[in-house]
Design a protein around this nucleic acid. Structure first.
Lengths: 110, 110
DNA sequence: CAGCATCCCCAAAGATACTG
DNA sequence: CAGTATCTTTGGGGATGCTG
């Protein structure tokens, strides 16, 4: 069966970046492995339910890896998958662009 | 008044990339100025209404420029703004990532 | 040619409460 | 600690028809 993702790299990337927090989460994990609560603390304004859903989505899209440790209390670690690692260069450019954008917009808005 | 965009370059970029076609449209315009109908033809599956809305959104976010010529029949040209030009490097990395992603996913899916 | 106006619908996101 | 479950709300996006 043929892939559902199409052959356009732009449409494909747009699809996996859906969701209000995808890029932010990928950035967080690009700084290193994090546990659920760490992510929750590091991403202000995200709710627990949203964080869970977004993590599941990124996991399904093969961008992140979820590792569960059989301990009490439970420990679950999230990190970039091999595919997620390939996204680092995009993140780098997004960061540069984002800062430029913020600078210009704030200048324009006074 | 303070900017509504926050100071996180990742959240900011995520916001301006909202919408199903933002990245694709930015790519199209990165190849050169295009008229409305050209964009419509070059982006299969997008509806006229959606194209209009997405173009307005990108214009409001200062990523593209809309130029209207006082002619009959009407001519409207869209192109990357100065800010949109700064997005080219992101697009380049998105393209590389997208191709990698498609290649890997298709391999995995058989 | 290049739109806009409208209606409608559903998926995404928010809020809240509960749990192995 | 790391989630689920459920309900509600929002608004993005599809479809259609009209127009300067």
């Amino acid at each position: 069966m043929k892939s559902i993702y199409g052959q356009c790299p732009y449409a494909t990337t747009q699809r996996v970046l859906q969701g209000k927090w995808a890029i932010v989460i990928l950035f967080q994990l690009s700084t290193g492995t994090q546990r659920f609560n760490e992510l929750e603390r590091n991403i202000p304004d995200i709710t627990r339910a949203m964080l869970t859903r977004q993590l599941r989505q990124l996991e399904n899209d093969k961008l992140i890896t979820r590792k569960v440790y059989a301990e009490v209390p439970p420990r679950v670690e999230y990190s970039l998958s091999e595919m997620g690692e390939k996204f680092r260069k995009v993140l780098d450019q997004i960061e540069l662009f984002g800062f430029e954008y913020i600078k210009e917009i704030e200048k324009a808005e006074g």
